[in-house]
Simulated assay, not measured.
Amino acid sequence: MNVLVINSGSSSIKYQLLDPDSADVVASGVVQRIGEPVAEGSPSIEHKSAGRTFEHDGAVPDHATGLKLVFDLFAESGHDLAEAGLRAVGHRVVHGGEIFYEPTLVTDEVIRAIAELSTLAPLHNPANVVGIESARELLPGVPQVAVFDTAFFHGLPAAAKTYAIDAKVAAEYGVRRYGFHGTSHEYVSGQVADFLGRDRTELNQIVLHLGNGASASAVRGGKAVDTTMGLTPLEGLVMGTRSGDLDPGIIFHLIREAGMGVDEVDNLLNRESGIKGVSGVNDFRELGRLIGTGDAAAKLAFDVYIHRLRRYIGAYLVELGRVDAITFTAGVGENDAAVRAAALAGLERYGIRVDEARNTAKDRSARYISPKGAEVAVLVVPTNEELAIARAAVRLVG
């Protein structure tokens, strides 16, 4: 009895059909460049099942069409979802606001509430809603469960979640720090405890989820005490296309001096900033290639990214007081040795060291990248949000 996990993003859909008990993946795939033109010979959907890859060529105009095509590929590969006896469909939902902080069975009312929270996550919640609605239509009768990125950070200490603005305004409009990538941070911090053979309640950890979206968290005794993202996923680290932290006065300046409207500023900071804004590219593999050619803008983008990352690592070292483990995860964190080395360079006096051979080894499993006997364990631990969502869905529906 498997679970289908759907992660309907701003321009993509990632999915897995998996056994939540054994963690075995039956099939998986991705729909890419939704709403964008697709170059000839570049498939928009790649579906993997039983060692075979099934592809769909041609543009995917919207998320609903993409999910329908995915279901067709499941049937073509021998796993017709309508006849698969699914235990549940688990959906990643980015923003749960103050309302949702536990896995939640989807109803019409829940969908409306998720849609209303789109003002806080305009890149993601609308796509999450479409994914949920499409799955409900294609799989009537199968329990649909929403798992929220903000849930792990719901219990942040008051000092960490509160913005220093007028308290009445904050209360009326739900202005607080929510945090994101919580499913990943919770899963990885748990995996770290298992890897080290220690109880998570004993550990102080810094978890660095570095992908196109990026966030860091401070975890004390298994509970998050701070994180970089805030009211929306825009705050914090420099990301692929998002600015991360910036002086709020920049927004007023762009409105007054550049004549930008609110939507233009929103688009600038969410889609045209970050690594892309500085260098012109948002893929770290391409960024590394450009740096190798001597591209000054690419080098500057890398340096800005690392500068912000180190600032938060330092802040969390102070906040936690004692750090047992620093862990890199997600696409960049798991695969970019240069980022890992630069992020922790020069921190030997704090017991933090990166072993060059371990760091550059071609290994995709959970592993140490600190030297043997180092005071602070520096790790790479692959995240598995799909497995975490599947297990959360099963716990809810039984």
Rank of each mutant, 00 (worst) to 15 (best):
V169K: 11
T329W: 06
P248Q: 03
S243L: 05
L347Y: 04
P37K: 13
I251A: 04
I251Q: 01
R358A: 09
E133M: 14
A39K: 14
A342W: 02
G333K: 06
G230C: 08
A392E: 15
Y187C: 11
T201P: 00
G141E: 14
F71P: 05
L196V: 12
A338R: 15
V318S: 15
D245Q: 08
L290A: 11
G288I: 07
F148H: 04
S10W: 12
E264A: 09
E385Y: 08
V380T: 07
E55S: 12
R311E: 12
G66T: 09
V207R: 01
L231I: 11
D295R: 00
I250D: 09
N204T: 13
K372M: 04
E172G: 00
V378D: 03
G213P: 11
N282H: 06
H209P: 15
T107F: 07
V60M: 08
A160N: 04
G259C: 03
L17H: 02
P233R: 02
F148E: 10
A50I: 07
A296H: 06
L234I: 01
T150P: 08
R256M: 10
T183W: 00
I389P: 06
A337S: 15
D226E: 15
R358T: 06
A337D: 15
V376M: 12
S10K: 01
E272T: 00
D247E: 01
F328A: 14
A218Q: 13
L69I: 15
T329D: 09
G141K: 14
R311V: 09
L379R: 01
E102C: 07
G97C: 11
G274V: 03
P248K: 03
R112A: 15
G351L: 14
A59L: 14
H91P: 05
H91S: 04
F195M: 02
D247S: 02
P37Q: 06
N204R: 09
